[in-house]
């Protein structure tokens, strides 16, 4: 049991981390905090993948010419390199949207934005543009 627990230690913690991140995404109303939750969620998945590739007694998969050397699995590393970049791209786009939302609604709190939508969508002119410009 202990042995199994030791073997799964990384995984168990990783799952707790994932769920912490996911919890933030769902439960927090602050849009920035959601993004941070998302990045924690994703980073935890990265650790999960890298843990899968670990070989006991292995080293980084950089060939040293010695045929007896054990290497960890390079494939998860490759995947996660891609995933990290994708994750940052998501974050960047999310933040850009948050900035625009803040401009348009004056808030980055989901509850307030939804309330603003409800109260103003009827009274506000459908296109804020042309009227304001004239």
């Amino acid at each position: 049991m202990i042995e199994q627990l030791a073997g799964s230690w990384n995984y168990i913690i990783v799952i707790i981390l994932m769920m912490t991140g996911l919890f933030m995404v769902i439960a927090r109303a602050n849009l920035v905090k959601k993004m941070i939750g998302l990045s924690i969620f994703q980073t935890s998945v990265f650790i999960f993948y890298i843990s899968l590739g670990k070989m006991a007694g292995g080293t980084a998969p950089i060939l040293d010419g010695n045929p007896d050397t054990l290497y960890s699995n390079p494939l998860p590393h490759v995947l996660i390199l891609t995933a990290i970049v994708v994750g940052v791209a998501t974050t960047a786009l999310g933040l850009a949207l948050i900035l625009r939302i803040n401009e348009a609604f004056g808030s980055v709190e989901e509850d307030e934005i939804i309330a603003a939508k409800a109260s103003q969508s009827l009274a506000r002119p459908k296109r804020p543009t042309s009227e304001a410009a004239e």
């Binding site: 995404v25 993004m35 998302l38 969620f41 994703q42 999310g94 949207l97 348009a104 934005i113």
Partner: peptide, 23 residues
């Protein structure tokens, strides 16, 4: 958002929900 600011929120939600789904 050019015609309705609510598009921004819709886009944001799609981004986050979609990212969670992809993850």
């Amino acid at each position: 958002a050019g015609t309705d600011r609510r598009a921004l929120v819709a886009g944001y939600h799609y981004l986050v929900i979609g990212a969670v789904g992809a993850t």
